[in-house]
Amino acid sequence: MTSEFDHSEPADILLVEDNPGDIRLTKEAFKDQKIANTLHVVENGVDALDFLFQRNDYADAPRPDLVLLDLNLPRKNGDEVLKELHEDPERRRIPVIILTSSDAEIDIIQSYELCARGYLTKPVDPDEFIDTIRELERFWLSVMRLPTDEDFD
Rank of each mutant, 00 (worst) to 15 (best):
M1Q: 13
M1I: 14
F5A: 06
F5N: 03
H7G: 07
S8E: 11
A11T: 01
D12T: 01
L15P: 02
E17F: 12
N19Y: 10
P20Q: 13
P20T: 14
G21P: 00
G21H: 15
G21E: 15
D22F: 04
L25M: 14
T26S: 00
K27S: 04
E28T: 11
F30C: 15
K31H: 13
D32E: 08
Q33V: 07
K34N: 10
I35Q: 15
H40C: 10
E43L: 09
E43P: 11
F51P: 08
L52V: 05
F53K: 14
F53S: 10
F53H: 12
Q54V: 01
D57L: 08
D57M: 06
A59Q: 07
P64Y: 03
P64F: 01
L66G: 07
V67Y: 11
L68G: 03
D70H: 10
D70M: 11
L71C: 08
L71I: 09
P74G: 11
R75F: 14
K76P: 11
N77I: 02
D79M: 15
E80H: 11
E80R: 11
E80F: 03
L82T: 08
E84Q: 15
L85V: 00
H86N: 12
H86D: 12
E87F: 06
D88A: 07
P89G: 02
E90N: 05
R91T: 00
V96L: 02
I97M: 05
S101K: 12
S102N: 09
S102V: 02
A104R: 01
E105N: 09
I106H: 13
I108W: 09
S111E: 04
E113D: 15
L120M: 15
P123M: 12
P123V: 10
D127L: 04
D127S: 04
E128G: 00
F129L: 11
I130S: 13
D131N: 14
I133A: 06
I133D: 00
I133S: 02
R145K: 07
R145H: 06
D149T: 08
E150D: 00
E150T: 03
D151W: 10
D151Q: 10
